[in-house]
Each structure stands twice: as structure tokens, then as C-alpha cells.
Amino acid sequence: MKRWQWIAISLLTVASLVVEFNIEHGDHWWSSIPAFYILFGFAGCTAIIFFSKTLGKLFLQREEDYYDVE
């Protein structure tokens, strides 16, 4: 990740926050939480990664020749 890419992302984030605080909100319970979608994206992604990996390690992942007794 190059430096300019990080700068671009930060600018985008700031722009989105500016927009967020200047427009009408939706009428859901989460609409009043500031930067909700930032948290949602970050936490959601993390949760999915950890949940899936755990599920895989515990139950689901097997060697490639698992079914090959046929």
C-alpha cells in the first residue's frame, strides 16, 4: 500500500464524515450513532473473518482427498 493510497483513503473518510453530519439521517435505531458505518464495516469484516476461520478450523476444513474413498 503506497503512501498516496493511504492519504486518499483518509480524505475519503473525512469527506464521508463531513457529509454525514450535514444531512438528514434515516429513521433506524442506528442512524443516530455517529460514524456507525465506519464501525460496522470494520467490526463486521473482523467478525466475519474470525467467525469463518474458527468454524473452518473446528468443523469444516479437511484435506483435499477427504472424499476419495469412493
Binding site: I9, L12, T13, A15, S16, E20, A35, Y37, I38, L39, F40, G41, F42, A43, G44, C45, T46, I49
Partner: peptide
């Protein structure tokens, strides 16, 4: 934008 950017960050 917020969702996509911070999915990327995570």
C-alpha cells in the same frame, strides 16, 4: 464509502 473503506482497513 464508510463501509467499503473500513472493510478494506480491517
Amino acid at each position: 464509502v464508510q463501509i467499503l473503506v473500513f472493510t478494506f482497513v480491517a
